[in-house]
Design a protein around this nucleic acid. Sequence first.
DNA 1: AAGTAAACGAGACGGTACGTCATGTCTTACT
DNA 2: AGTAAGACATGACGTACCGTCTCGTTTACTT
Lengths: 210, 210, 210, 210
Amino acid sequence: MQSRSSAPRTGRTGRPRSAEADEAILAATRAALVELGWSGLTLGDVATRAGVAKTTLYRRWAGKNELVVDAVAVLFDELELPDRGSLAADVEGVVLQFAGLLERPETKTALMAVVAESTSDAVLRDRIRSSIVDRQKRLVTEGRARAQARGELPTESDPETAARGSDLIFDVIAGAVVHRCLVSSKPVDTDWARDFTRLLLSGLTAISPA
Amino acid sequence: MQSRSSAPRTGRTGRPRSAEADEAILAATRAALVELGWSGLTLGDVATRAGVAKTTLYRRWAGKNELVVDAVAVLFDELELPDRGSLAADVEGVVLQFAGLLERPETKTALMAVVAESTSDAVLRDRIRSSIVDRQKRLVTEGRARAQARGELPTESDPETAARGSDLIFDVIAGAVVHRCLVSSKPVDTDWARDFTRLLLSGLTAISPA
Amino acid sequence: MQSRSSAPRTGRTGRPRSAEADEAILAATRAALVELGWSGLTLGDVATRAGVAKTTLYRRWAGKNELVVDAVAVLFDELELPDRGSLAADVEGVVLQFAGLLERPETKTALMAVVAESTSDAVLRDRIRSSIVDRQKRLVTEGRARAQARGELPTESDPETAARGSDLIFDVIAGAVVHRCLVSSKPVDTDWARDFTRLLLSGLTAISPA
Amino acid sequence: MQSRSSAPRTGRTGRPRSAEADEAILAATRAALVELGWSGLTLGDVATRAGVAKTTLYRRWAGKNELVVDAVAVLFDELELPDRGSLAADVEGVVLQFAGLLERPETKTALMAVVAESTSDAVLRDRIRSSIVDRQKRLVTEGRARAQARGELPTESDPETAARGSDLIFDVIAGAVVHRCLVSSKPVDTDWARDFTRLLLSGLTAISPA
DNA sequence: AAGTAAACGAGACGGTACGTCATGTCTTACT
DNA sequence: AGTAAGACATGACGTACCGTCTCGTTTACTT
């Protein structure tokens, strides 16, 4: 599955595009994001860092938004869901992993910015969804299946209902972590992860007495 | 309570600042956000729309970020929490209200953008928190107190634990709605609000059988 | 008489244009022409040399052509026609003076270039004519009047015929010197000036026997 | 007669150069000059028009200047000097012919431009001289010889003096026509040609009374 | 009523980045 | 080896905004 820019190859003649350039540009983009943040990042600077001409960059990506999406998308693929033996432990694990990813300056500054831009750019919105968001739903479906196998969660027969449930769980987990990190700007530590997990599993009515 | 820019008034002599200009600028900012989005918004354009000189604008706000925070902050104060008789109904109500706010183009494009900028700007972060975020926590504390009065939720004696709980609930509700709206870009309708409320109140283990 | 750029002043409000900037830019343009020649001259470089922003330059001139015309026009005003006592001496004098001007690298490289561009740009053509060419016709009319006063040339009663004659003489003198200098690229020395003057005054049929 | 670029043929192996490509490129260059003028002409566009790769073009010419010199040089070879029976008629004829050539957009825009470039490029200067200028001196020497045979002009015994005279006449005729056409931008019609010829043959002192 | 001090509109200023274009070189596969 | 196609590094282009500045003007509070 490829998230390459506009058109990978049209014809077969002519000098082929440099494969090294692609990775150099994405790495330079991440480095620039760390140093300069989203609004300080310029495509000219990225090109210089990558040892590449600005034209090469514009030949592959339409602009800053698209480039950054591709540059950070790969980081999200690092997320894993090791089996920790229980649903609660799995949720805590993924929450902490996701928070760790959001603490990295390149993701923290880039993610909200591209989401903001995507509110007025449908193409970008699709790109974000296909390159970043949808790919991480695997964590939810996998964790849920595991919990069902353990008997911690009931099996859902209707596939559509199952999908709606997964979407909801995904929005709640990802949304809560993002909001805690970036909006409330408070740390996602083990205490918070435990509190959150308890709320998620047992609901509001059960949190206080515990 | 005012979130005026740098210094409202230092001396007492000289021509006083125009009060109309302030509101004209904020209204122009919101209008420009709707038409152009965050990245298309320029301060020169805002000044023109407001019928004001650029200098007047810079005399009051330090830059685009600060201006937009002030311009959208007031919109969040519209949120209310009418008593609907039960905790579930109150949660559903606030979720739908919040979602309605996020559907408006000026908030949707502005909120994520300033949050993104705030990741590398502590002053802006504080401004967002004091002008927008913290002021809406009243909805959580109010709703919670009401539920406790109804006996739907246990009373929390330790005030620190109570605050931690409110923060968590706030991050979960606001985060889930924002994520659903802006990242997953799917509608927050009554169905979703009901599903989310059930999850929030009863927890994961209880959602499917219902 | 001013050959200022587009619009000298439209309104009376706002910060007035820097008068120093104008002269600094024209001087920088001449210096850059000497060092780099026409095709090597860039507006960015001129701006840097003049200690001025590129925008300031574009605010005053529409492009390279217009700027260079203004920059070299003033040099042509240095030409004078001191009375040397006879028509032949006056012609020789002005030929050598004009040749001296054309030897300067800033004029030599600029003049032909802007003339070349003017072949496909009517506005530029008029600008060249009014800023440079027509202003030097004074040399011809003055020299001719002086010769008529001396009795070396017959007086022309019809003003239109007189104008046609002056135009012709101007084209022949200026054209010959320019062609000798820039196309044939041979020196315009006193020998050549004497030969040319004899041809101009007495015609082809008389040159060889002398 | 060869105005080929770098080297016609060095080795004998490999695929031979396409002979058609050469003429296609020169024709495309002339067409592009007409449409776009000197500064609008690009080598990439010429290559496209000629149905040729840019590489092919660069293999044969060093750059825009050289290419254009070759493209327009051939046009100047069209000039002829039919015997019209008298020196005055011959001069008038060649003046009108030359003016007709200079009215063509490809020559008008190209000639001055390459001359301008040649002021800072000695190699180009030589190329222009050998490809264009010197080849047209034949018109002067031929016309002069014809006039001498008719007895209209005295015979010049010293060959060096004769050459100096021809150079001078050439500069005066060519210079005057070029200046009239391109600098004064007024038409070279039969009236002007007659006036100019009378001045050239009889000199200043004789023009008015006629 | 006159004086004073700051805010006001207008717009020029030095900068920086933009996204495009042309140059001249190169790499590939084909002839 | 010559070719068409097209990617490449380089660097100028002309534009748009930035945030600051310099004007001349307006508007309130002082004396």
